[in-house]
Nucleic acid binder design. Sequence first.
DNA 1: AATTTCGCTTGACATTTATCAAGCGAGAAG
DNA 2: CTTCTCGCTTGATAAATGTCAAGCGAAATT
Lengths: 232, 232
Amino acid sequence: MRSDDKSLVRNLALFAEMTDDHFEKMLTGSFFQRFPANIILIEEGAPADFLHVVVDGGVELFASHNGRDCTMAVVRPVSTFILAAVLKDAPYLMSARTAEASHILMIPAENLRTAMAGDAALARAMVVELAGCYRSVVKALKNHKLRSGVERLANYLLRTHQVQGANGKITLPIEKKMLASVLGMTPENLSRAFATLKPYGVKVEGADIHLSLIDDLKILAKPNSFIDDPRA
Amino acid sequence: MRSDDKSLVRNLALFAEMTDDHFEKMLTGSFFQRFPANIILIEEGAPADFLHVVVDGGVELFASHNGRDCTMAVVRPVSTFILAAVLKDAPYLMSARTAEASHILMIPAENLRTAMAGDAALARAMVVELAGCYRSVVKALKNHKLRSGVERLANYLLRTHQVQGANGKITLPIEKKMLASVLGMTPENLSRAFATLKPYGVKVEGADIHLSLIDDLKILAKPNSFIDDPRA
DNA sequence: AATTTCGCTTGACATTTATCAAGCGAGAAG
DNA sequence: CTTCTCGCTTGATAAATGTCAAGCGAAATT
């Protein structure tokens, strides 16, 4: 693991305040590995052996049941995933696969639990991290229970627009197929949802999307900071 | 606050391992109060001032947006709610109202944060508690994204059947109106979903429900421990 | 006791979403 | 270069879900 990769991890809010000693011990027995796209990293139901950290690339968390499956979240660098399963020593509730070629750091679950027991700053950081994870899933659940598919798409576009500089155009960071799954609809319906948004200034050209009537789109989308703002 | 009520709270996994001293200090400035049914305890978006503990009764957590609202969870004694907002010192993401007459303990957020900073056992217990909260919301989200309304009802009935002794009959612990909201459907659709389950041995008599063909119901419901088992 | 309220149910209808089938076109593989 | 695969789109149709309206009956109110 290169030292600048290591410092990326070290600077995560989760690990920033722990002692160097605990940090180094925690990394003992960890793996830092490169995976190609579409590799299954974690299978739902398996025991939680490692905390994973996406250092580079992107990872899709998804869940399957009865022949269906759906994307639960897309994890971008630099952040951890499946922390809760590791801490409870419980089976993973979601599967994970690389959405693109990715660098993943895998920290043995036991190391993390040991570090937490000995390092109070780490324990406090975990509380904050988990509280944040909890709140983001609550927002996702609200998004689903309180909005239609078209509304979810409209808000996704507005959020992405903010992230990408709010200059009237965005580039979808994931394939439309996966976006459909994130938004909880079929790819066919996503196409139709884009068509529905045409009168609101949404012009689709492959992965590039132009938003010419932001105000109109907002009237339809009704963005709500307690659903859409990741910091709230 | 009566001493047996206090010991109920003291024995919560969240507080069981902290020192008596920290526990007592944390309770200073707390309120223990009885509320009638249908009282709003918390409004979505308000700053998180208190950690709430349901000692007796029942509390509905719900979210509202654009004229709709939906039940996010029903909290039963003895447990806490909105821990994450308190710890992050962030606005509540959900509102809360008493579903019935309830005894609620309210602990000032600041007290909790102070206690956590000074008591490592409490911090560790919080990590576990929050991880559990996170996992239960993930399960709820999977339930919604991967199942139809009828399937959600069937699994709710099976889960409740287990909880209530698995003897072929159950009594709904909440009104059908609220159950519909929990399951993410309208009351009209809940009625129809019950009708759909008739051939699977589901007989409705007010709040009393008889389940005569559990195996058939399971074939339809396809229960999955990573969605339905609260301990998994 | 009479009245009102409200939860619940049912029917008719509209809307949303999924499914099946077909076809286009860019990029990968041979 | 050709073929194939696969993501994406569109149309037709079916299924699921929501909305509106009406009515029943139990519980609460007067």
